[in-house]
């Protein structure tokens, strides 16, 4: 089972496209994920010492913030981090029990909570920190891409998206089939030059990140009106308005 499924080129690759140019770091994706999944496929997502020092819990989505570059020229970037549902996920192949698996039908990486022994090796093997140990029940948990939402026939069709996507107030998260070059998400990735994280490790992450766009210093080529008369140049700059003919 932990051998990767044979997936032909063009097979469905469900995943997320995260727009770092638009994310304001509001944590909506993180908490909406938490509330959906707390009672969802991998329920519960326990929190330890929830009301005292050292509170920590299982979260499938965590939003960091970074600064890139120096001083006023730099950027502050909010950076949501979750499972990237890699094409060659070592978290799956290192699993000794077969609990971790990559689905042949859509590429989603899941953990079978019934057979996971909680060895933690998959967390070591994941470069992105996507694995979340439930130390209460001793099994590994992770982003399911809301598998109990995206195909859920009891949910209106437009809402069949991962919780983090449907709730994102700046629409910085997009969900779709990245295996289909014609899909909206693939086109978005192509248009904006979506990137892999840590491509040098060769995991083939399916989720893509859209980098902050180049900021031109000015939207227009507007130049200050240097040659306009200044108060210092003419004794009464108001004169120019005295004879202006206006009507309603």
């Amino acid at each position: 089972m932990t051998s990767l499924p044979d997936r032909p080129a063009g097979a469905k690759k469900l995943g997320l496209v995260i727009d770092l140019d638009t994310c304001v770091g509001c944590q909506a994706c993180a908490t909406n994920c938490k509330e959906w999944n707390a009672s969802g496929h991998s329920a519960p997502l326990p929190d330890f010492k929830p009301y005292s020092a050292g509170a920590e819990g299982v979260w499938f989505n965590r939003v960091h913030s970074y600064e890139a570059g120096e001083g006023e020229q730099g950027r502050t970037v909010h950076f949501p981090r979750s499972c990237l549902h890699c094409e060659t996920p070592a978290c799956v192949t290192v699993c000794p029990t077969g609990a971790s698996y990559k689905r042949a039908e859509d590429g989603i990486v899941l953990v079978n909570a019934e057979t996971c022994i909680g060895c933690g090796l998959c967390a070591w093997a994941c470069p992105y920190g996507a694995r979340e140990m439930d130390e209460d029940s001793g099994v590994m948990k992770k982003c399911t891409l809301c598998i109990d939402r995206i195909y859920n026939e009891t949910i209106p069709e437009a809402q069949r998206q991962p919780a983090c996507v449907i709730t994102c107030p700046t629409r910085a998260r997009h969900f779709g089939d990245l295996g289909d070059p014609d899909s909206a998400v693939s086109q978005l990735v192509a248009r904006r030059g979506g990137q892999d994280l840590m491509p040098e490790l060769g995991y083939g992450p399916v989720n893509k990140y859209l980098q902050p766009r180049e900021r031109s210093s000015a939207l227009t080529e507007a130049k200050p009106v240097e040659d306009a008369p200044t108060p210092m140049d003419i004794p009464n700059p108001l004169l120019r308005w005295m004879d202006r003919v206006l009507s309603r």
Binding site: C26, Q27, A28, A30, T31, N32, K34, E35, A38, I166, T167, C168, P169, R171
Partner: peptide, 10 residues
Amino acid sequence: VLCGKGSAGI
């Protein structure tokens, strides 16, 4: 849409 706070209402 719903923000980080609203989503944590539970």
